[in-house]
Write a protein that binds this DNA or RNA. Structure first.
Lengths: 195, 195
DNA sequence: GTCTATATTACGATAGAC
DNA sequence: GTCTATCGTAATATAGAC
């Protein structure tokens, strides 16, 4: 992977981030060295510091971008005509979004403890905002008497855990299509909160 | 934490494992040094090698013991009078067992990638055996027409993910008792698979 | 069984040449 | 913007004294 000198700022930056994403997901943040990332990109370790002030920022930027994209994509949806439709939309969106980015999802769940306190607080606030969206859907459905549960916050956490669990077994080349997976999980979600 | 020389084999061994469990759960396997573990125990780093051949074995032993205990405790249960009772028993057992060992659970889910290939295969086989127990309960319930689902394997994975998610928010000193948590989750599980 | 001391290797990050 | 070279530190694991 050795290469001669030259200027490639516009393509090296994204490649550094892509390499870090793949390596952090595979081996864990603490187990990956800057030299490994550089080797994957095809530069020397020192060159990485043209694109990130330090290793911590590299991790944080990956997680921050992931959460921003999640909330942005989610904000682009209509919200549905009622609580049931909104819940179905949330369910399908969550599965689709997360199954398409297994590495970023993995990192965002596993590497929280390797964030600096300040960075952790930022990511946690974004995650909380996403969880709150599901909780509000559940509360609206209770008010409309189409859902029945005693603890909407905990139900929201339980449903998100279930949906994110798709990533532990789903493969795009597996037996089930993403549409079929959505259907199976939407069936469980619908029944679990049904009035 | 410094201490003078002396022989303490019978108490140091468990303390090494306890320190490793706590530190691995808090900071991650790769981020914890043998010196940190030794410091927590109150010995020098070299002394740890009287209790483990290397750091990898320390991690593996923690995970192996956790899985063995899970399967052993589970095997001590009756199984219930029918599929519905069996599912309720599984649900309550899973929540109770996992909520009582948050550190071991955390490690067993997060540090799989830090196991050597051989060790990974052993742990995976044990995990699979546990998942199969839930899958068999679901299949029995389908046969008896008390459960309804199209994919019992995936449903089992979904339910386990949901139940293990309790560990992300539950605190023994929080608002809800463990019995209340069990009740809430059993309600969701029951409805999700109901015929 | 634990200590001190160390061999060997690797880490994150920086400096200055090109 | 990337290179080579390096600073300062810390890692796992081992050896031999007590």
């Amino acid at each position: 992977m050795a290469r001669t000198q030259g200027s490639h700022s516009d393509i090296t930056g994204p490649r550094v981030r892509a390499a870090a994403l793949a390596l952090f997901a595979r081996h864990g943040f603490a187990a990956v060295s800057m030299r490994q990332i550089a080797g994957e990109v095809g530069v020397q370790a020192g060159a990485l510091y043209n694109y990130t002030p330090d290793k911590q920022s590299l991790l944080f930027d990956l997680m921050k971008d992931h959460m921003d994209q999640l909330l942005q994509d989610r904000a682009g949806l209509t919200g549905g005509d009622g609580p049931v439709q909104a819940l179905e939309q949330f369910t399908r969106f969550h599965i689709r979004f997360h199954s398409k980015r297994p590495e970023a999802v993995f990192i965002s769940y596993m590497e929280l403890r390797n964030l600096s306190p300040d960075n952790f607080a930022i990511i946690e606030r974004l995650r909380r905002a996403y969880e709150n969206q599901l909780e509000e859907i559940l509360r609206a459905g209770m008010k409309a008497r189409v859902f029945d549960m005693c603890e909407p916050r905990i139900t929201a956490m339980a449903l998100i855990a279930m949906l994110t669990g798709v990533n532990t077994w789903y493969s795009p080349v597996g037996r089930l299509s993403l549409a079929e997976v959505e259907e199976i999980y939407w069936g469980m979600v619908r029944k679990a909160v049904a009035a």
